[in-house]
Simulated scan of single mutants.
Amino acid sequence: MTRTLALVESPVQLLNALEWAHRYAQGPGRGEGGGPPAAGLHGFSIAVLQPLDPVTRAQLAALAALAAAEGVRVTAYDPRGGAGGTRTRALTGLAGLTGLAGLAGLATRVARAPRLLLGDAFSGLIQALLPLSRAAELVVVDDGTATLELAALLREGRPLVRWHRQGRPSAAATRAARRLGPDPHRRLELFSSLAADPPPGALSTANQYAWTRERFGPPEVLPGADLLGSSLVETGVVTLDRYLDTVTGLAAAHQVGRYFAHRREHPDKLRRIAAATGAEIVRPQLPLEIEARRGPVAGTLLSFPSTVVHTLPLVLEGTGVRMKLCAVDADWLTPTASARSLSFLTDVSTSALSRHGLELISPVTA
């Protein structure tokens, strides 16, 4: 029987589900206060709820193949009905289920799983499935820096809505907050590599990326710098012109040879970056944590506020690679960016600087 069912929608979530499984396969210790013995990989299964974006689907396929090689059962579901013939082929060599029958089967699995692992507690689809669960244990793994916001919302008992979203919270977001809130009959675990303060009664377990470090690398370290791309333009938070100007300045000042594109970055934007900087545009096949660990990687990594300023220092510890963080200033923001945007990005930067000792690059002098 499936002891733990993971629901994931992105490569990062799938990677962190694997890290959770690896962590629990090592022994009985769980977080600060210990816990029940680990179940290991026996009875661990991952359900991939596929997105529409083809780049994300390709990364999920590559990472799902690695998971299957580790003996983890991975099943693909296509609730959004991907484009044409890609629907069942997106996770090559793995089971693919589409349509109402597939979703009905997933609903049954969610209802029966004693432990449910959530890759994105903000996801509308996962929030819709969550009320079906009777699991005595709920685990939330990192979905990037959104974990910081999730922990804060759970502490305050507020609906689970991402920081850059506008408008009235949905009923599902309100129900999800209650479902993940304090309950004497249910255990909540937060598995995170970030300095997220868990809500009262929740168990906090550190994600040290042990599986990634053991499985890959150490990498070959190259001269010069790599620039890590951001989707802040695509999510409507910062203006395209300000972002392009800063990227161009960073590339010239730090001898950037490669630009690692975020999976959501628009091709037209990437073409403009290539023309302005002369840098090679790299579309990673796997999450950056794995790409950087298996190498090659430049000796200096430049990044905007994002998840990787927290995760890559862990993954690359002891390799000699240095990270520099380019802060986002108020004049970067679009007129429609939420009031929370700048403070959230500042919090991401401040916590990474204090935890990992990164060098801060001013956006004015970048």
Rank of each mutant, 00 (worst) to 15 (best):
R3Y: 02
E19Y: 01
W20N: 01
Y24M: 14
R30M: 05
G33F: 13
G33E: 06
G35C: 08
G43K: 00
T56V: 15
A62G: 04
A65T: 04
L66S: 06
L66V: 14
G71Y: 04
V72T: 04
V72C: 05
R73E: 15
R73F: 09
A76Q: 15
G82H: 06
G84H: 14
T92Q: 15
L94H: 11
A101H: 14
L106S: 05
A107E: 07
D120Y: 12
G124D: 15
I126H: 06
A128Q: 08
A128M: 11
A128F: 02
L130R: 00
A135N: 03
A136K: 12
E137S: 12
V139W: 08
V140K: 05
V141Y: 07
L148A: 09
A151Q: 01
V161K: 03
R162S: 12
Q166I: 14
A171Y: 05
A171T: 10
A176S: 10
R179G: 13
P184E: 08
L190T: 00
A196C: 01
W211N: 03
E214G: 05
R215D: 05
G224S: 11
G229Y: 10
T235V: 11
D245K: 15
V247R: 11
P267I: 03
A276N: 11
A279Q: 07
E280T: 12
L286T: 05
P287E: 10
G295I: 11
V297M: 03
S303K: 13
P305D: 00
V308K: 09
V309C: 15
T311C: 04
E317T: 11
T319S: 06
V321W: 10
R322F: 00
M323D: 05
C326A: 13
T334D: 07
P335R: 04
T336P: 06
T336W: 15
S338T: 15
A339D: 15
S341D: 11
F344V: 12
F344W: 12
V348T: 09
S349A: 13
R355V: 08
L358W: 05
E359C: 04
T365W: 12
